[in-house]
């Protein structure tokens, strides 16, 4: 606890000269972020950060491990696989829209499309694939899209997250937008994502244990006990915004996609572990 405080104070001192640091590259940001969390949690191995609160809290970890024999998302993954493999009305399948037939590619999402000038998340790619093949898009936050996304993540288990910010002003702007969103305080309660997940991971907010920013997107889509089902990362974003009394933005809005881009970039090198469970 005391150590974390020391770091925060040190960070505050370093930040007193933001201009000197302005213009940091995404890779410099990422390295500093990894270093920050390593100092905050010196006993936690880098790869363990994908397990969020289970990496930091022994009691929570035991509860979690006891769930691993029969994970509650198993049925959804099987259902996702079936949907993934079932041809559309035109005879094509999802595989036709993705590199390597959509197998083992989760770690490359989201990416910046330099032709369309926007961030493409896995869920966006799934729905665009449907539309390109004459199918109705799925709802964004849960249900079929979460199941398909969960199946695709399951084929990518263990692959290191590999997000790229190409040398392109628009890509860099999308990354910066996401970063600014992450650190901006919102809502009547005046919380940023970072208020909890950078400043206070490892602490309790009432009966909830706060996880660190590092590794967070690696376990999505996630089965939350609170939801009783799988949900996408953007569903979680909306829930967090709502908790601080900030009006949530639409799932797959440009803002949330840029946020996902920044957040996932920070987790580069960590293994994909989605789908996973959380309280």
């Amino acid at each position: 606890m005391l150590k974390a405080k020391v770091i925060l104070v040190a960070l505050g001192a370093a930040l007193a000269v933001p201009q000197a640091l302005a213009g940091a590259t995404p890779e410099e940001d990422r390295k500093e972020t990894v270093e920050y969390f390593k100092q905050m949690f010196p006993d936690v191995p880098f790869e363990e950060f994908v397990n969020g609160q289970y990496a930091l809290n022994e009691d929570r970890r035991k509860q979690w491990e006891s769930m691993q024999d029969f994970p509650p998302y198993e049925f959804a993954v099987a259902e996702g696989q079936e949907m993934f493999e079932t041809p559309f009305a035109n005879g094509k399948t999802y595989a036709s829209c993705f590199e390597n037939g959509g197998i083992g590619i989760r770690q490359n999402y989201p990416y910046f499309d330099t032709e369309k000038n926007e961030v493409i998340t896995l869920e966006l790619a799934i729905n665009r694939c449907r539309e390109a093949n004459g199918e109705e898009p799925l709802k964004w936050k849960k249900g079929a899209i979460a199941s398909i996304s969960a199946y695709m993540a399951s084929t990518s288990q263990g692959k290191p997250i590999n997000i790229k910010v190409p040398d392109d002003p628009d890509a860099l702007a999308a990354y910066q937008d996401g970063k600014e969103f992450y650190y901006s305080r919102r809502g009547q309660l005046n919380f940023s994502c970072a208020s909890c997940h950078v400043q206070n991971p490892g602490k309790w907010i009432r009966a909830d244990f706060l996880s660190p920013a590092l590794g967070q997107p690696a376990n999505f889509p996630v089965h939350r006990s609170k939801w009783g089902e799988l949900g996408t990362l953007h569903r979680r974003f909306a829930g967090c915004n709502n908790n601080v009394r900030a009006e949530p933005l639409p799932a797959q809005s440009e803002e949330y996609r840029n946020l996902e881009y920044f957040l996932t970039y920070m987790s580069n090198g960590l293994p994909v572990v989605g789908p996973a469970t959380r309280p």
């Binding site: 925060l8 009547q188 309660l189 005046n190």
Partner: peptide, 12 residues
């Protein structure tokens, strides 16, 4: 740097 909400200013 505090995360404590500004209870009065934000009319909480």
């Amino acid at each position: 740097m505090t995360v404590m909400p500004p209870f009065g200013r934000h009319m909480i």
